[in-house]
Amino acid sequence: MRTHGNLALGALLALSGLASGCTNVRDGFRPVLTDAPFVYDIGELRVIGAEELAGVDPSTVPDAVHYGQLGAGENAGLYGGATFQFRATGSSVCVVVDPEAMFWNKEISTQSNTVQYKFEDIFEDDGDLDLSAGLAAYYTGSPGSEIGDFSAVYDDPAGVEHELAFNECIQTGYFGDPAHAGRATVEYCDIDTSLHSGVMYTAVLETFALPIDDSILNFGALAFDGRCADLPWYDSNGALLAGASECVIPNEVEYADANGIPEEKAWFPELERAYCSGVGKVNTFCKDNPGAGCQSEEEL
């Protein structure tokens, strides 16, 4: 009947319009899917002591210092991450994660030029991981498939359930509120394991942002036997210093990639050493190596 025919035509018109609309998502803004996993479990890491860490190339102890990569997931709204477990020592454990690469803000100070970065960071290579840690028994995620948090349920005397947060990696921000470090910035915290010696802990490295250059976030992570303030590392002069920083886990860009350091980031190790040695060294490096991780002098 003619009625049906025209209804069908109308429906077809509407549907074809919708179909063309459905494919019109601006994919250029999504992170690119790569081989880097969305969620994975590192496994158990040995808690490494100060003497060993000071005397060894961190890339040669993969059972204690992990270099890895994280990538994008199917759903634009969710980010994944990595997890690892470590055994409580009965005293302070410092958990550290260092995401690719380095970030500084050239304009953070109106003070003299000698303490100010002269060159802008190239930030496209920076990713951001957020660190939390707690007793493995309280972890709500599923290592290797789903990122969760640390919580337990308390039933009050009236039978009402309340969720308790058991993240023991407390980092505070500008207002003393719970916070995480920004892009490319190392995150670390002291966990007091004195009440749970020998018990398994989980550390969660949740992806906050992927680098926009290649959607692959290289990172390094470790658990240190002692306080974060005592973490050893070497500066560009070979001096042994202490204190958790960018420099404790060196060269995450090179060691995380199975194929070694990508050519376009060949400058990374040297820039990182300069970064670990002060603003002046970064300025010098950037001046001598324009475009290598920092803007060239012309940009000034």
């Binding site: 308390y154 009050d156 309340h162 308790l164």
Partner: peptide
């Protein structure tokens, strides 16, 4: 009535 101690 209180819940468990979370932070020392």
């Amino acid at each position: 009535s209180m819940g468990p101690i979370v932070t020392a």
